[in-house]
Design a protein around this nucleic acid. Structure first.
Length: 436
DNA sequence: TCTGGGGTCCTAGGACCC
DNA sequence: TCTGGGGTCCTAGGACCC
């Protein structure tokens, strides 16, 4: 059994982390510019209008479950007049950026953990009244950006996460909860399951239960030796963190990406390789743009395709192919050329495909690039061209310059039948205010 | 008819090397 | 009669997260 480097003795005891989590983030974003939606049930759909991935409080309370396919919820949506939105990542991403930059007012150490969550190290800022500080954060974000957030505070990231769960569930908490010592929280944790702990999913939860450990308290009450013997490092870390022993630090600088993936399901199944190439061109264009934005080069590319796994009666095909480049690159043209030949190898005729995608792996920084001895492509020219295309697409709008192999019919486009405007990122979609 | 997308980390097992 | 041991790297798959 491997073990972790856990340092009880050297562990700073005066650390306080806050986890700020936006409530029903996507649904709340939709409300900022449509105040009439306040108090109404809202759901937001995944790409291709497939599943429900965000629900307002009202939508949750009428029993709409996370991840439900839209078609299964049609009836309740109609009966309860639920407002349905296709996902609008331009809007959510921009609102997220505003929140994260606001949070830097409250701590010099902010880790942006996801689009709607951030960890703050608030040890220095305000130790004497944590609850008050949490409330201040909550009030200011609502005032400045218009998004309701919950704040959980604890001595480790795992405890801050758990506190955040309580901030949402404990009625009297008003969206802010501080865990000083987990031992004292028996009452409020009554309805919290093992799986509600950050790092414990369904599988691990089941395993732990099968060891006859049923509650968070039993789990955190284990002796060190027992923990080391019975669990792998990930779970060891989680348990120590519950005990207030810090094992997971704040990540101050965003770590360099290790992979970049772009893939989408199609509106309709596709059996023609030409159409797959068109879709793939579009995904590669996006993925390569991400590479360049992060000043990265890819050394390995993987392309994959598959049929619709839910259509069990139809022949299934699920395959991927990997290619290692001699020289790392971020030139879209090179990726398109290679991908097309990979696609030809795995494509099967008379098969109804549902999705293709590309993954870039083994990413290196542009600064680490080693010049080829006999380059086939002039790298300076390539960089100039890519930069020009990127800047045109940035300033004039996405899709101003596209690659010919993307085609113009775009029958592979994902469904997005009810998307709100990109109020804050597109000049022509600015909200209009009428004053009478 | 209709079921998302994008990541990270850990582990076990095999290949390979000396 | 007798056929080691230890280390590293790679990969696939599992589990987790949002």
């Amino acid at each position: 059994m491997s073990s972790i480097n856990y340092k009880k003795e050297t562990n700073r005891t005066d650390t306080w982390f806050a986890l700020v989590d936006c409530n029903n983030f996507y649904a709340s974003c939709e409300r900022i510019f449509s105040p009439s939606l306040e108090d109404k049930p809202i759901v937001v759909l995944s790409n291709n209008d497939g599943c429900i991935i965000a629900r307002s409080k009202e939508a949750k309370s009428i029993g709409i479950e996370m991840g439900t396919p839209l078609y299964k919820a049609k009836r309740i949506i109609k009966n309860s007049n639920v407002q349905v939105f296709s996902s609008n990542y331009a809007l959510y991403g921009d609102i997220s950026r505003r929140i994260m930059s606001s949070l830097s007012e409250f701590s010099t150490s902010v880790e942006v953990y996801s689009i709607d969550e951030a960890f703050l190290d608030i040890s220095k800022e305000r130790k004497e009244n944590l609850l008050e500080y949490g409330s201040e954060i909550r009030a200011k974000i609502k005032q400045w950006v218009g998004i309701p957030v919950s704040v959980g505070i604890g001595k480790t990231k795992t405890l801050a996460k758990l506190a955040n769960e309580l901030a949402k569930r404990v009625v009297t908490a008003n969206g802010v909860y501080v865990i000083h010592k987990l031992e004292n929280e028996k009452k409020s944790l009554r309805n919290i399951e093992l799986e509600d702990v950050w790092g414990i999913g369904n599988r691990v939860g089941q395993n732990i239960r099968s060891m006859n450990i049923k509650t968070i308290f039993e789990l955190m009450g284990l002796k060190q030796q027992e923990i080391m013997e019975r669990f792998n490092v990930s779970i060891q870390r989680t348990i120590f963190e519950l005990q207030g022993i810090r094992c997971i630090d704040l990540e101050h600088t965003p770590t360099r990406k290790k992979s970049i993936c772009v893939s989408r399901s199609f509106k309709k199944q596709i059996s023609c390789i030409k159409k797959l190439e068109e879709a793939l061109t579009n995904y590669i264009t996006n993925a390569a743009e991400k590479l360049r934005k992060n000043r990265l080069l890819a050394t390995t590319i993987v392309i994959f395709l598959h049929t619709n796994p839910f259509r069990k009666s139809e022949p299934q095909h699920h395959e991927s192919l990997t290619y290692h480049l001699h020289n790392a690159s971020n030139d879209t043209r090179i990726f398109i050329r290679i991908s097309f030949s990979l696609l030809k190898e795995i494509f099967r005729h008379k098969t109804q495909y549902h999705k293709v995608g590309i993954i870039f792996l083994d990413l290196i920084s542009e600064d680490e690039y080693q010049q080829e001895l006999f380059p086939k492509i002039d790298r300076n020219k390539s960089m100039k061209l890519m930069n020009t295309i990127d800047s045109l697409n940035n300033t004039m709008g996405r899709g101003t310059i596209i690659y010919a192999s993307e085609g113009n019919k775009k029958i592979w486009r994902s469904r997005s039948s009810n998307k709100s405007d990109s109020y804050t990122t597109q000049w022509n979609e600015l909200p209009i205010v009428k004053a009478y």
